[in-house]
């Protein structure tokens, strides 16, 4: 119990962020038209690619002779980049089609 309380008090800021983001996430996409479900899902998919920051840190702090860490980090960075880059590009491709038609109308 003591450890849990200690953990909560030492991570206050983070916990506040978690709580606020939960409500914000609901608020932000609350009234999305069903037309945009797919692009929105794809965009959100790209945003959680932020996990790549962790991968970069893992990779960058590994000692140059620690091959296990290097390989794990390398793989993580590759996968994370695929997620981020692929995610944003695919979303843009979907939305590009929407925009073309909009300007024509």
């Amino acid at each position: 119990m003591g450890t849990i309380l200690h953990w909560i008090s030492s991570n206050q800021q983070m916990i506040y962020i978690v709580i606020l983001m939960i409500f914000l996430g609901v608020e932000v996409i609350g009234r999305v038209p069903s037309v945009l479900h797919t692009p929105l899902m794809s965009g959100a998919n790209a945003v959680h690619g932020v996990v790549i920051i962790g991968a970069i840190i893992v990779m960058g702090k590994a000692e140059s002779d620690n091959y296990l860490a290097l390989i794990l980090g390398f793989l993580a960075v590759v996968l994370g980049t695929v997620n981020v880059v692929g995610g944003f590009v695919v979303t843009d491709r979907m939305l590009e089609m929407f925009r073309n038609k909009k300007t024509k109308n």
Binding site: V18, G25, I29, L40, A44, V50, V51
Partner: peptide, 20 residues
């Protein structure tokens, strides 16, 4: 990593994704 950008992005997607 005490990284607020990761936390913000992650939870935001977690919550918005659940609603979606």
């Amino acid at each position: 990593y005490d990284n607020k950008a990761m936390l913000t992005g992650g939870i935001l997607v977690g919550s918005a994704g659940t609603l979606l």
